[in-house]
């Protein structure tokens, strides 16, 4: 795919010679595809950066994207696709920023004419394809790292252990419970039990969209581990559909207390602790 020394020399001459015209046309095409979501000035700066990177690299002779001397070009391309990925542009919109160069080159080749023009255009076009693929790859890489970061943040954020009462802690589970999250929840809950010396824990599954055998297994493991340490667990927040699923799947919670709402669970624990929770008549002003 690499350009020969001769070809890259001509590319440098072509792009370098018509610098103003090239960046102008290039910016116009890209701006059209982005529909004004990026300012003209910023777009122009990006295009100029790319243009100068390509010219500099092609002046050094053979262009090979994987070679040592193309480091600057690679950096410029990665920079562009990283920016696009973070700003929420689609993959097509990112790739077009590079592929627009083809159209510019086609215009230039037509103007120049001559016997070598067509062959040169094909070679340049191949190079642009390669640049486009590289951009696409770094775009995907950036997106993937974004997703990984978010997953980690989600894991950190979504498992708080809150103290409800003296000796009563609660874990409101929100979102799907996979093995990794179940492990984090279990460890954090057990550690909190030790740190606070609470003999009761309430696991609230109101925010869990679906309970299958695997999720039930994770919850049961947590309860058994807490029991081994000398704390009792109550499961609360079981919605009607979830209750039906649990029965249909034949999941046995054994002698683990289950309550419909967090309030019921708290009242249950308080009664076990000997705290009176009488329902009073609401006071009325006469």
């Amino acid at each position: 795919m690499a350009l020969s020394a001769e070809e890259s020399g001509r590319l440098a001459a072509l792009l370098g010679g018509h610098a103003e015209q090239v960046t102008q046309r290039w910016t116009e095409i890209v701006a059209g595809s982005l529909r004004g979501r990026l300012s003209q000035a910023e777009l122009r700066r990006q295009v100029q950066d790319l243009h100068s990177a390509i010219v500099t690299t092609s002046k050094q002779g053979v262009i090979d994207l994987s070679a040592e001397n193309a480091a600057e070009l690679r950096a410029a391309l990665s920079e562009l696709s990283r920016g696009r990925a973070r700003q929420g542009f689609s993959a097509t919109e990112t790739a077009i920023s590079i592929f627009a160069l083809k159209e510019v080159l086609a215009g230039l080749a037509e103007e120049a004419g001559g016997a070598t023009a067509l062959r040169d255009y094909v070679a340049f076009s191949n190079l642009v394809d390669e640049l486009g693929l590289f951009t696409f790859e770094s775009f995907v890489r950036t997106r993937e790292s974004l997703i990984a970061d978010q997953a980690e943040q989600l894991l950190e954020l979504s498992t708080p252990v809150v103290k409800l009462w003296e000796g009563v802690v609660a874990v409101p589970l929100v979102g799907t419970l996979d093995s990794a999250r179940a492990q984090v929840v279990m460890e954090r809950l057990l550690q909190t039990l030790v740190d606070t010396g609470s003999p009761y824990a309430i696991i609230d599954i109101t925010g869990v969209p679906a309970v299958d055998t695997q999720v039930a297994q994770h919850i049961l493991k947590t309860v058994v581990a807490a029991r081994l340490m000398g704390a009792d667990c109550i499961i609360s927040g079981i919605r009607p559909q979830i209750a039906q699923t649990i029965v249909a799947l034949g999941i046995e919670f054994g002698d683990i207390a289950t309550k419909a709402t967090l309030a019921d669970a708290l009242r249950h624990v308080l009664r076990l602790n000997g705290v009176e929770t009488a329902r009073r008549q609401p006071r009325r002003d006469v």
Binding site: M186, E187, L190, Q191, K221, A225, M229
Partner: peptide, 18 residues
Amino acid sequence: VVGMRPAVAITLVELGLS
């Protein structure tokens, strides 16, 4: 039995010892 550590409890559960 008192003072079982969380890590110990998790291991026992994973091993199936109750």
